[in-house]
């Protein structure tokens, strides 16, 4: 599973362009211990004249969790779409295990070992759990016109794999839409782990979940990391990110606002930066001082 520093990766490290706008390159120090599974350098993406992403640098190592933090519209979705193969990047370099790549389709990304679990589109709600689990990579047996799904194997494996991750399913035949949001995320993660993904990209896995369910999902994220996968965790919740993350990349309006390893930053600082840093202070200032207008029952204009 691990890819210890091979020649290709080292070569990749040398010609890294340092033109990434404002990118804090925390990579150099880590290259020695093993090449990153995925490395983005100054990656940009434009939609027409809209700059969705500009000069983003990100590393994903085996057995580590790289968190991408940002507010709505910060470019998080664009970033994962590039990694997942849904969009092609316009500029910068995208390396998988040291090899320069442009992914043309999600299938290609999967074949390269990158599995993505989306917040809303992880599963097809009306299909049974076992069909969802193997969707896109269905095992078959038999030959020619009698090549068919290996249904008993699919059912049994789904049941076993989910139980291994601690999901005790009533019935693998139930439509996956009847599972809770957290369970659906976990099924998707279990699926990625089972199919031998090297890199797991999670899009806001805890966004729509309650505290307890979020905890369950984060536990599986950590389990995937311990299994040796490199994890990209996209979130706007710094508390969740700091619980499991090893590196943190902050995005703001399409550009990088910071890049830190865990030992460089505290939760408070991460939260502050995530919330907009000094902007948050200004906002607090305004909220405290702003007198309520008269029509809302305040006394702001009474004296006037």
């Amino acid at each position: 599973m691990t890819t210890k520093g091979d020649g290709v990766t080292d070569g990749g490290g040398e010609d890294t362009p340092a033109d990434a706008a404002g990118a804090v390159d925390a990579a150099g120090a880590v290259d020695a211990q093993g090449g990153p599974l995925v490395r983005l350098d100054g990656v940009s993406k434009h939609y027409g004249n809209v700059r969705a992403l500009e000069g983003v640098t990100l590393e994903v190592h085996a057995g580590e969790i790289s968190c991408v933090l940002g507010d709505n519209g910060a470019g998080k979705s664009t970033l994962i779409k590039i990694i997942a193969g849904l969009h092609r990047h316009d500029a910068g370099s995208f390396r998988i295990e040291g090899e320069e790549t442009t992914l043309g389709s999600p299938r290609e990304a999967l074949d390269r070992g990158i599995a993505t679990v989306y917040q809303d589109l992880a599963v097809v709600p009306l299909m049974p759990v076992w069909r969802n689990f193997f969707l896109g990579s269905e095992p078959t047996r038999g030959k020619g016109p009698f090549r068919r799904l290996d249904v008993p194997f699919m059912r049994a494996t789904t049941h076993a794999e989910l139980r291994r991750m601690g999901i005790d399913l009533r019935d693998v035949d139930q439509p996956i839409g009847t599972l809770s949001g957290g369970e659906r995320q976990c099924v998707a993660i279990a699926r990625a782990v089972y199919f031998g993904a090297k890199v797991l990209v999670l899009d806001e896995p805890t966004a729509a979940l309650g505290v307890k369910q979020s905890g369950v999902v984060l536990k599986y994220v950590a389990a995937a990391r311990d299994a040796g996968l490199g994890v990209v965790l996209i979130t706007h919740n710094p508390h969740h990110a700091y619980l499991v993350g090893d590196r943190f990349v902050l995005l703001k309006r399409g550009v990088m606002a910071g890049s830190h390893t865990r030992d460089e930053i505290t939760l408070d600082e991460l939260t502050r930066q995530m919330a907009g840093g000094s902007e948050l202070d200004d906002l607090r200032h305004e909220l405290e001082r702003a007198p309520a207008p008269a029509h809302l029952g305040g006394r702001a204009t009474k004296s006037a």
């Binding site: 389709s105 999967l110 993505t116 589109l121 896109g136």
Partner: peptide, 8 residues
């Protein structure tokens, strides 16, 4: 979209 995302 979910189907496409898993490689269908």
């Amino acid at each position: 979209d979910a189907a496409r995302a898993v490689g269908v």
